[in-house]
Design a protein around this nucleic acid. Structure first.
Lengths: 290, 290
DNA sequence: CCAATTACCTGACTATAGTCAGGCATATGA
DNA sequence: TCATATGCCTGACTATAGTCAGGTAATTGG
């Protein structure tokens, strides 16, 4: 706790100030950050707004300023929706971006410079660890309607992954269907994990009357795997099942999903005989909730 | 390198923004930071200016604003100089500070909250390591006149430490004296190590004609020991000796300064017969500069 | 004792950050 | 096809951050 506070205070303040200083060479910081965030690949205005957490009006103004300087081009995006606009860097803008990129390198060098080789290695390791764990801690887990676009995108990714990993692919039409309505309270719940707005995982709980509570659609994006997100979702689903008065939960899974199976076993699930005829399932698990 | 950049970008930005948000509850950020920095113990205005890196005018204005809100009292300090003013928190100010302190705790809790116990421990370890090494990397090493107040404070600390650690104490009058003038180019150099303005170490080099270059007054503050500062000072002194055309450096030391002796040996120094009659010395070392 | 310096304060600025209501064009769903 | 929602833009703001040229009182060094 004290460590976290010291860290926040010194690192954030000092490195943050340095970073800002390096980034804004003459240009206002807001503009520099925006220019940097657009990047050589360009970006949609909405995405920029989300990433930088800016007011739509303010962002628009910043874009106009960069446009006036001839660094950025904002025009209708490549997507179908003509309202969505895309910001791209002009040739000058790309040059400017490259300068920022070099500044960023210089800053990193100036931090590593005074350290011995051994210290540099230790710093890199520790920084990577901090970043990884802070990422994990910033993942937000909240109920969401299963029809929400971000939930949908998780479910698509889930189906895509199953079709890659199952021996004979995955056809949703063959699998036992789950009705969206069954994942809305009080008949169930759908949890969505997001990292600064981006969907990175999900899990669902069916709480139908007269049958045991069942866990469905547990999925974690590859970008955040290994951070304990799956376990967090799972235990939150269990908590909600217990809260609803259930004394056990069960689930089925495919033999190829080895990490998931490992997660279930280490979370206290025990294998039980098949309780349904899901064609893609090889294992059925159950856990008593205390 | 890439790790440092990623770290700067994500951690600094995200945690920094969070930190600011928690800190400034209604109040402008500048004021909140200042209030926090004054702390229950109070602080001199000059110290605040240095720590926060603010313009004198701006700081003054912030203090007036806090004074107008009845949170801070600025009056002549306890020191002798009546120009130096000291800011202290009023009762209300202390209450406000306590709130900030709690917010800071809440932020730390909100970061640790979503993590498992194991992850929390790993995060704390990694954060401490990052902070330690960043501190090391922010230590600035530069020549300074030996009469500078910060240099003086280092030399006082050096003498104090010797008197604690030598078997029979340390009396500067008994030791071979070093004239300040001999530590000013071209007759020598005095290096001062500072961490955001605060003196944390020193070292000197005598470059008198006709005798080998000699290292004197190598000292590192306890607060930054173990960060390789001593080694940095030592090798910078060697570099300057070589630059001045010398092909070796030598030094004397007391048997109780075991870390120093270890540093000299591991830096390539070899013990040589006594080359002076310094009463406090037990070991004499020399190193050839390549 | 006087000139120079130091520590802080004040007034008068400019620039950047951020907000809000309203507007236009496009898309969507009944 | 028409009401409604969405994505972005604009104008008109306010607040905060930051700078700079003096100014005053205390201190220091000759």
């Amino acid at each position: 706790m004290a460590t976290v506070r010291r860290f926040n205070r010194t690192v954030t303040q000092r490195v943050g100030a340095l970073d800002d200083e390096y980034l804004s060479r003459g240009r206002p910081l807001g503009q520099a950050r925006l220019l940097w965030e657009i990047g050589p690949a360009g970006a949609e205005v909405a995405a920029l707004r989300a990433r930088l957490g800016l007011d739509a009006g303010y962002l628009s103004r910043l874009l106009r300023a960069l446009e006036a300087d001839g660094l950025v081009d904002v025009c209708a995006g490549t997507g179908g929706d003509a309202r969505v606009r895309e910001a791209t860097l002009t040739t000058e803008g790309r040059a400017e971006w490259a300068v920022l990129d070099r500044e960023s390198d210089d800053l990193a060098r100036s931090i590593l410079g005074p350290l011995s080789t051994g210290q540099q290695g230790r710093l890199a390791t520790a920084m990577a660890e901090v970043e990884r764990l802070l990422m994990a801690s910033m993942i937000d887990l909240a109920p969401s309607p299963p029809g929400d676009p971000r939930a949908r995108s998780c479910l698509r990714a889930y189906a895509r992954e199953l079709s890659q990993r199952f021996d004979a692919g995955f056809d949703p039409a063959v699998s036992k269907p789950v009705d969206d309505d069954d994942l809305v309270p009080p008949k169930g719940v759908f949890l969505l994990a997001t990292l600064s707005g981006e969907p990175v995982g999900c899990g669902a709980l069916k709480l139908l009357p007269d049958v045991p509570a069942e866990i469905k659609r547990l999925w974690v994006s590859g970008t955040v795997r290994g951070l304990g997100v799956g376990r967090r979702i799972l235990s939150e689903l269990e908590r909600r099942a217990a809260e609803a008065g259930r004394d056990s939960v069960r689930l089925d899974t495919n033999r190829n999903l080895v990490e998931a199976i490992r997660l279930y076993r280490s979370s206290g699930y025990t294998e039980v005989p098949a309780y349904n005829d899901e064609p893609y399932a090889h294992h059925w698990f159950s856990k008593r909730l205390t």
